[in-house]
Each structure stands twice: as C-alpha cells, then as structure tokens.
Amino acid sequence: MRPAPRLLSLPWLFFRINALNELQYRVNFFMQLIQSVLALFTALAVLALVFSHTEELAGWSPPELLAVMGVHIAVGGLIRMAIQPNMLRLIEDVREGTLDYALTKPEDAQLLLSIREFRIWQSIDVLVGALVLATAVRWHGEAVGIGGALGFAAAVVLGAVMIYCFWLALTSGVFWIVRMEFIVELFDGVYQAGRWPVTIYPGLLRVAFTFLVPLAFAVTVPAEALTGRLAWDTLLAAATFAAFLVVATRALFRFALRHYSGASA
C-alpha cells in the first residue's frame, strides 16, 4: 500500500483537471439543469399519481417515499459524476488498446482507472436530490438526531462503495466480452428500481436488488436512516457486505486484468 496522502492527492489532481476541462463548456450546465428538472418533475408526478390512489405503499408514507426518491436522485448523480464515466472509459480503452498507457504508469491500476474521469455538472443531480431529501425530512416532521445523521452519512458512503464495486465487477467483463456499451442501458434500467423501497419487491427480486445489485444498501437504507426506520444491525450488515465486496471485486479485477493482452500492437 502506498502512503495515505498519495491516495488522496492523486484523485484531487484528476478532479482538478476534469473540472477545468468541463468549465469550458458552460452551456452544458444549463442542459444538465433542464434534464434534472424534467426528471424531477416526472418523478414527482409518478409519486403524486400513486398517492392519488392509495394512502400508503407497503407501509411507506408519502414523506418517507419522497425521502427514498431524494436519495435515489442524489446517489444517481453521484454514480454518473464519479463512477460511470470511469468505467466507460475503461471499456473504451480495452477496446481500442489504449489501456496500455494507463497500465504502464507507476500507480495502482485499479486506483488510477477509477479516478480518471469526473463530470462536475452531474453534481446538479446531487444537489436536487439533497433538496428533495431535505423537503421530505421536514415534511416527515420528526427531528433527525445526531445518531440519524451519522447513520445516514455512513449508509450513503457504504452504499456508494458497494455501487462502485458492482460497476467494477460488471466492467471487468470487458476483458472477455469486448462489446460492453450496453452496460449503461442495463444499469440505468435496473437502477430505476431503487426509486422505490426494495421492501415492495417480491421475494427473488428483493434478494437480487439487495445483494446482486446493492440498491437496497445504496438507496433504501440511507433513506431509512433519515426517517427513523433504520435498525443498527442493518448498518452493521451493510458494513460487512461492503468490506466483502471491496475485497472480492479487487481480486476479480486483478484476475480479469491478467486476461488483458494489449491490443495496441
């Protein structure tokens, strides 16, 4: 392992480069804003529609579901800001043989390949999600204590780590199957399931959305933390599962990397 400061300074360096690059294209900010607002409008319309036909959904009240929606938007923004672009670039690099340039750098390959891209305008979704979440918590009415806030922060970090691991595992497939562009459609489709608490899904689907695609940990659990529904052993289970995923996906990635033969020649 390299010393901790380097583990932080390197991502910071790439973040600055990416930010400077994207700041040149300021119109994209407005494009992203329009998209985010439209998505928010649609999501609110769906929620209103559901609650025009029922008072609660499988034990979840309107403010609680709004909290789930807020986390879903924010985490989705986080994924498109920091995780997805890196994985897509990895896929492109493998296909075009340009991964060689990254691998020959004197840094840990997984670290380097996970921090090269950063989309600053996607932070709009993180902000929109946070606003929705704040509204939901106020509407819910119960004060969030320090315990709830800490539980929320821990749950979001753990959830983000798990989603990163999931993306990395999925992307590792590129070393065997070269055409992987469909991965975005696949992930976006499945990620939409997280807009609703995973407890509403029947048996097998719920298991899949908890352990196969960790939507439960990334969206439902943080929302539970802020609405006073979280049991502490859930958080402990999340931490254990996250640790397992980090170790397992790192091993998988290193194994997959050995299949890379370099296509530049």
Partner: peptide, 21 residues
C-alpha cells in the same frame, strides 16, 4: 439481450408498484 433486460426492468417496476397499490 442485455439491452432488453435493462428495458424490462422499467415495466416490472411499474407492475410491482401498481400491484402493491
């Protein structure tokens, strides 16, 4: 196929939500 599975997620979500309602 992968594209289609991503697509099928959408109606399954609607279906589960409205069946619950």
């Amino acid at each position: 196929y992968a594209y289609m599975i991503g697509m099928v997620a959408e109606p399954v979500i609607y279906l589960v939500v409205w069946s619950t309602v």
